[in-house]
Design a protein around this nucleic acid. Structure first.
Length: 464
DNA sequence: TTTTGAGTTGTTCGA
DNA sequence: GTCGAACAACTCAAA
């Protein structure tokens, strides 16, 4: 008899209910990971390192992680037959791809007289558990978050198993999956910024709770400062358990910073809940009338945005941070997304796709729900007239320009007064900063005021 | 069933 | 320079 633990986005040993229950059974284990072929490039880079870390952690406890690629149902069924597996353990997953795989697996395993046990692991709450008084699912954040608080997060974190008694079976070699970039190797900035894996996730949380959390409520909006937790990729891959994060943060007291951080954890939860309700959240607007939105994409604008060459400093800084580090500051994500969707009138799905390719975390729930929120077609979406002015946002949240100077070095020598509006700088100021507009840095594709007007008109047309 | 209050993150304008 | 109102109307959730 044996148990099979199927790792998905729960790449950790501590507080991993699927693994824990399998270990508790006392039976031999098969520890399996199946490559998720849908991953974007940055996501694959992270996955490589996360799997490397997990393999090492497992090996350190006497176990062995099996790596396989192919159809999950076939791979698991074959292992079940070959090793007399009587139960498969896995974390519950909410992405449509996994939901479909689980349905098929359930059928296949029943035929083999093998159980399928799924555990609450990647989210704080099972999505069907948080309901309105009428029994439906929420579509608005605030009442959703209240219901979560009332439900409460259980404090029963599970220890990492000390030893793992696992069966060695055929496994791919991680390097043969070729998840890392080779030529060109664009991952240098990512290596410098991140430590994927469970140990890295815990270190990140610890560092955050040791300092930045205190000022999180305000500092999280300032991209030039390390004011956020930067846990999103770790959380996406399940290198750290959300309830562990929740209770560690709560143990830090009940200040404004902690309170705001917990609320952000509930936003992650809300996105998962929305994905549960809208499996096609990455493609289809939740508010149906947006199917007819009068987008007006101009040739070359999407590429300029992707390359950080829009001519709007804060937008370009964000897009370059994304490209270089596989991550973008939350405040800047909103500004960049808003500029693409509202000023450039490019369909939000194209921005979502770019983020999907570039973000280490590339999370279906968070990415889909957030892009829809910015575009105005999502749950609880921003009112149409809420158009971010990238100049005001830049001045407000990157006042000294630390962020822009870092990621848009050609502007680094501009004085504060013109840093967010280089197109308004007199020639001699630009020359003194060693640059010429249109040569070293582009003129804006669309000026903030013009973009705002175009966006408002487009939204007015939609209403008609 | 109907009513009521409220809804992440903003900007502009005019007093 | 600061501050409050307007920017729409709709849908959600609860009573």
């Amino acid at each position: 008899m044996a148990r099979l633990v199927w790792f998905r986005n729960d790449l950790r040993l501590a507080d991993n209910p699927a693994l824990h229950a399998a270990v508790e059974s006392g039976e031999d284990l098969l520890l399996l990971y199946i490559l998720d072929e849908r991953a974007g490039a940055a996501n694959r880079w992270w996955l490589h390192h996360s799997l490397e870390a997990l393999s090492k952690d497992i090996a350190g406890r006497g176990g062995h992680l099996l790596l396989r690629r192919g159809e999950p149902v076939e791979i698991i069924s074959a292992l079940v037959k070959a090793h007399g597996v009587n139960a498969v353990h896995a974390a519950r997953a909410y992405e449509p791809f996994w939901r479909e795989a689980d349905r098929a697996l359930d059928v296949a395993l029943k035929a083999l007289d093998c159980g399928l046990h799924r555990y609450l692991s990647t989210s704080l709450f099972a999505p069907e558990r948080i309901t309105t008084k009428a029994g439906g699912l929420f579509g608005v954040f605030t009442p959703f978050s209240k219901a979560c608080m009332e439900a409460g997060v259980p404090e029963d974190a599970l220890p990492a198993p000390r030893t793992l008694k696992s069966i060695k079976a055929k496994s791919d070699a991680l390097k043969d999956w070729a998840l890392l970039p080779t030529k060109p190797d664009w991952a240098g900035g990512m290596r410098a910024a991140w430590q994927p894996g469970e140990a890295g996730a815990r270190a990140r949380l610890k560092a955050f709770l040791a300092g930045p959390v205190k000022h999180y409520a305000t500092a999280r909006d300032v991209p030039g400062v390390e004011g956020t937790s930067r846990l999103s990729p770790h959380a996406h891959f399940g290198e750290i358990s959300p309830r562990f994060v929740w209770h560690q943060a709560k143990a830090d007291g009940d200040g404004k910073g902690v309170e705001t951080f917990l609320k952000e954890l509930l936003w992650r939860e809300f996105s998962i809940n929305l994905l549960w309700q809208h499996p096609d959240i990455r493609q289809k607007p939740i508010r149906g009338e947006f199917e007819d939105f009068p987008w007006n994409e101009r040739q070359g604008h999407l590429a300029a945005w992707q390359n950080g060459r829009t001519g709007i400093p804060i937008v370009d800084a964000g897009m370059r941070e994304l490209w270089q580090t596989g991550w973008m500051h939350n405040r800047v994500r909103m500004i960049c997304a808003s500029y693409l969707v509202k000023h450039l009138l490019v369909p939000w799905q194209k921005g979502e796709q770019w983020f999907w390719d570039c973000l280490c975390e590339a999370d279906e729930a968070a990415n889909g729900a957030s892009w829809q929120w910015v575009a105005g077609c999502g749950a609880d979406a921003a009112p149409y007239f809420r158009v971010f002015n990238p100049v005001l946002q830049g001045r407000k949240f990157d006042a000294e320009g630390a962020y822009v100077r870092r990621f848009v070095p050609e502007l680094a020598k501009l004085p504060e007064a013109y840093l967010h509006v280089p197109w308004e700088a007199p020639e001699e100021i630009l020359a003194k900063a060693g640059m010429k507009l249109g040569r070293d840095y582009p003129r804006p594709l669309v000026l903030p005021a013009d973009g705002r007007q175009a966006a408002l008109e487009a939204y007015a047309n939609l209403k008609r």
